[in-house]
Amino acid sequence: MAARANAGSALTRQRLKSAWLFLTPMLVVLALVAGWPLLRTISFSFTDAHLSNLDDSSFIGFENYVFLLQDPDWWRAVQNTIFFTVVSVSIETVLGLLIALALNAHFKGRGLLRAAVLIPWAIPTVVSAQMWRWMFNDVYGVINEIMLSTGLITEPWAWLADPQLSMAAVIAVDVWKTTPFMALLILAGLQMLPQDCYENAKIDGVHPVVVFFKVTLPLLKPAILVAVIFRTLDALRIFDLIYVMQGNKQDTMSMSIYARQQLVDFQDVGYGSAAATLLFMIIALFTVIYLYLGGIGREEKA
């Protein structure tokens, strides 16, 4: 008896040892590519480091942050990013919900449509940006062409030059590209809903719209919430799409673009790192909220 218990705990000990052995390579790599660079970025943000001599920098305390908070361009980037995030994620949620409902219905060619919806997601962001930049071209773009010929507008719009239109254009491309992701997450939620509520409602003759708002939407709330948080975190760090479509233009500059411009174009590593660190803090806050919500969901299940 005792021998067997001993063997059992020896086995447990061996398994624990191998657990850490198996985890170590992954943890070392993550520490190297995530932990260490993040710490260095944060410490750079308290120095006057310059790209040409990273090793020879001196500590200047919170000076970078003080400058940053006084820079109207930074606040412009913050404002742009928040506006972009709120508007694009809202549209994507509503549109994604509609598409998910449509894909959940039974009809011929559902598989085909589901595959088609994945295409925008699969196209590289840079390629999407270029494709839409061409479609939004003010002189030769097909969007102006269609709108002119259908009489929606009377003269070509300068989609990418006009300050107001350019943000709308960027949001339109993001919506096109990421709504599929949203729709698929919500669809997965839809397919896990219990069917009996629906059958009861059908027997009672409740109008489908009422069923949607009274039954479907409340049950779907957790799935939608997770999708919204995922997308929000992603939208807050937006870089590629806006950078390729608009470069460093102020009208659409996001926080990531602002930080990269300081870091690389102006070579001001200290200052750029401060901007990057602030963005990290904002996203970390959201992540903690998300993990907290996710953690609660798990405990309820268990």
């Binding site: 993040l38 260095r40 970025t41 990273l54 975190l233 926080m255 590593v269 990290f280 970390a284």
Partner: peptide, 16 residues
């Protein structure tokens, strides 16, 4: 970690 904005590690990664 998967939520990290890439820009937040850019200068540290560049140095590395």
């Amino acid at each position: 970690v998967s939520m990290f904005p890439q820009i937040a590690v850019l200068s540290g990664m560049f140095e590395l």
